[in-house]
């Protein structure tokens, strides 16, 4: 079975490999931005790339439960890595926006308060903070069943992220809508009651 083989591969891949592979684009993008590889307006390009990687990582994180439930693929051990990497990229995205893009402190606050897409993006970032802080094994043990409930905030974060993307786009564009569609689809897969048991 292909699923068994994939599970066997996944068992052998250490989680640090996921951290390294997915952290790598960040310095590469900054280097490209500084050396002309991102075009003549590197600030917006960098901001957008970082934001999109964060959104992709959130989507990957949301895939893990359905993959296990419907296909029997077990990637659970990577879920924390994808979540923390998403937080890492959202933080970088925010920093580029603050420091390189808007620059002016008064303008930053005005944007957060006045511009709904910025407000939504900030809300998503703020909601990710407790998730990142409670990502340790100790926090999981200490919070017990509360941990699962708390981390359902990921669903909210992903939807807010996609809406943020749609809202900042000019005209009718497919890509941000596709993200929202995929995210809502992945959330819908969780609505159906799981058949059988959770044995993996």
């Amino acid at each position: 079975m292909i699923v068994d083989r994939l599970n066997a591969v996944a068992r052998r891949v250490p989680t640090w490999a996921v951290y390294v592979a997915y952290a790598l684009p960040a310095p590469v993008l900054v280097y490209m931005g500084a050396t002309g590889g991102l075009g003549v307006e590197p600030i917006k390009a960098l901001e957008r790339e970082l934001g999109e990687i964060a959104l992709q990582l959130l989507v990957i994180g949301l895939c893990i439960t359905p993959l296990r439930r419907y296909l029997g693929m077990n990637l659970l051990k990577f879920r924390r890595a994808f979540g923390l990497l998403a937080f890492f990229y959202v933080t970088l995205h925010l920093l580029v926006w603050l420091v390189l893009d808007v620059q002016i402190p008064a303008q930053i606050w005005a944007d957060i308060v006045k511009r709904p897409y910025v407000t939504i993006g900030m809300a998503a970032f703020v909601l990710m903070i407790p998730l990142a802080l409670t990502s340790t094994n100790r926090a999981v043990r200490r919070l017990g069943s509360g941990w699962r409930r708390l981390h359902k905030l990921t669903y909210v974060v992903a939807v807010l992220g996609a809406v943020h993307f749609i809202w900042l786009t000019k005209g009718f564009q497919i890509e941000p809508l596709a993200y929202l569609g995929v995210i809502l689809g992945l959330l819908a897969l969780r609505l159906r009651p799981a058949r059988g048991n959770h044995a993996a």
Binding site: V30, G33, V40, E41, P42, I43, L46, L100, V102, Q103
Partner: peptide, 11 residues
Amino acid sequence: RRIGGGLFSKR
């Protein structure tokens, strides 16, 4: 932002 100022272009 005037295009051409690179990664640290000032507004």
